[in-house]
Amino acid sequence: MPRAGLTSERVVRAGAELADEVGLEAVTVSALARAFGVRTASLYSHVDGATGLQEGIARLALDELADLAGEAVAGRSGKDALVALASAYRDYAGRHPGRYAATRLRLAADSVAVPAARRHATLTRSVLRGYPLDEAYAVHAVRLIGSVVHGFTALEVGGSFEHSAPASEESWARILDALDLTLRQWSSSAS
């Protein structure tokens, strides 16, 4: 019989909170069991081992982030939408580094987190509607945006920009300007 008060959702949420505190790689079923004051075996009725726990955290984080990004993008187009989307990701990573790391996990095709991950591609494609981009280039543009936003964010969260000037905020603004310019000119410059 499961311990009173423990649910899959509560276990996953506790895992996400722990990931933000100590890093995703340190989150294990046994670490959560210690936090709940139960035996490790007690949690296996709520999560399917380490993989199930990580996928649960990924799904939670992907859903949270898609909700935030969707709200940020709503009613915006073009560069305003691009900046809102990119900034939502960057801000989330700064507030929730462990959860953000979970959004970058490679997911199995049958993972419970796949539908949440697909929401992000849909959001990015909606931002691209504000640009004169041929549909043939959409997948490349989605990948470009993801690479730029996640690459910069990963470096920043990892502390790579802390020891140099100017502040990373200035670089972020210039990078988004360049990304906007690239997207506005892509159809005419693509071969």
Rank of each mutant, 00 (worst) to 15 (best):
R59G: 05
R125H: 00
S42I: 11
A102G: 07
G15W: 01
A86W: 14
S147D: 14
T122A: 13
G158S: 08
T124W: 10
E64Q: 15
S189F: 06
A81Q: 08
A117P: 03
D180W: 04
G70Q: 14
A31K: 06
R174F: 03
T122Q: 13
W172E: 07
A109M: 07
R125G: 01
F152Q: 01
P115W: 13
I145P: 05
Y137Q: 10
P115R: 12
F152N: 03
G159H: 11
L85T: 03
G146M: 09
E71T: 14
G52R: 04
E9Y: 08
T124N: 01
R143H: 09
L105S: 06
V139H: 04
H120T: 03
L144E: 11
Y89W: 15
A4G: 15
E25M: 05
G70N: 13
L133F: 10
L62C: 09
L68H: 13
G15N: 06
L123C: 02
F161H: 08
D48P: 05
G130C: 09
R59S: 14
A88K: 10
A16Q: 04
D91L: 03
R143W: 08
S189P: 00
E135F: 03
A173Y: 05
A121I: 10
V142Q: 07
A136S: 13
Y89G: 02
A84F: 10
R99Y: 04
A31D: 09
G52D: 05
L24M: 05
A66F: 13
L176A: 00
S147T: 15
S164D: 02
K79M: 00
R34D: 14
Y89T: 06
R59D: 13
L82E: 00
S189Q: 14
A66D: 07
E170T: 11
D134M: 04
A16K: 03
R95C: 02
A141E: 07
Q54K: 07
L133V: 06
A14K: 02
